[in-house]
Simulated scan of single mutants.
Amino acid sequence: MAKQKFRTLKDGRVVPIDEGGGAKVFVAGAAIVAVVGGGTAAGIGGSASVGSGAAAEALPGNLAGDAADSLPGRSLETRKAEGKKSAKRGRKDETFSRFKLKQLKQTAKHEIDCLLNSTDRVREYLAEHRCTSLDRNLFAVGDGHGNAAVISVARVGFPKKSDAEGCEKVEEVQGSGDIKPLGAALLGLDGVKFSGHHFRSRVDGRAMVVAETETVAGQVDSGTLDALADVSVWFPKL
């Protein structure tokens, strides 16, 4: 089957170039949900999925047996509480093992052009309140049995704490714009878009930190995606 191609319209929507089949992109309000190959689409509040074959090739190690479970038999709330403690210490592997997941891939970028890497009202805010740094990280995690998620963590530095607090107030409103996550294509996961429905933000000194998550293969339930965002936002500057 030929690989589906996409193009971006002037209004920011991503649409398929119809060549008789393949992947499709559905636009549901502010959420863009991509489906490639054998994946399944979800509407608002759902997740983006990449077909298991594509993800298996892009995420070596996600079909290689169980990931370590450091909290066997524990509830999701307990896993989230312990994961937060691990994240605060910067222990990524330990954080992910709280959810019986392992890190499969990671990429990062340090930049200073916040305007180029933001959208809508968030971008307008940054045009009026200068940022001093932008650090973006992207992680792929999986359970070793074909189920995987991607996690974006972005940290925006400002001259003053009040600037960071003001930016978070804009950022946390659904549909108000975003600090653009690093593209999942950097991890070999073409077609994955962040919907913004599994999102957490916080202010850390003079910085605003934003974490977002999405499913990229198999099934990762909504509660776990939310919990991964809740804990990943506590990673110190990476």
Rank of each mutant, 00 (worst) to 15 (best):
V220D: 03
L138V: 13
F199H: 06
L182F: 06
L187M: 07
V150E: 05
A184C: 14
S152D: 10
R202F: 00
V122C: 05
A108N: 15
L225A: 04
K180T: 03
K105M: 10
D143E: 08
C131L: 03
S195A: 10
A229K: 03
D143P: 07
A148R: 03
G157C: 09
G146I: 12
S118E: 00
L138Y: 08
Q103R: 14
L182P: 01
A149H: 03
A140R: 01
L225Q: 12
I179S: 07
T224V: 11
D226Q: 14
A148L: 06
D204M: 13
S162A: 13
V231H: 07
R202S: 04
E212T: 00
A164H: 01
F199Q: 05
G218A: 05
Y125D: 01
H110A: 00
C114G: 14
G166R: 09
T215Q: 12
R206T: 15
K105E: 08
S222I: 14
G223T: 13
A164M: 01
R123A: 04
D135S: 13
R200V: 08
A127R: 10
P181C: 14
L189H: 07
E214N: 06
L101G: 09
V203N: 06
L189Y: 05
D190M: 10
N137I: 10
A148H: 02
E171F: 14
A140F: 03
F194C: 11
S222M: 14
L104Q: 05
D204R: 12
H129E: 06
F99T: 08
D163E: 12
N147M: 08
L101Y: 01
G177Q: 04
E124G: 13
D163G: 06
L186K: 15
F194E: 13
N117C: 00
V233F: 01
T132G: 13
A149R: 01
L134Q: 09
D135A: 10
V210F: 02
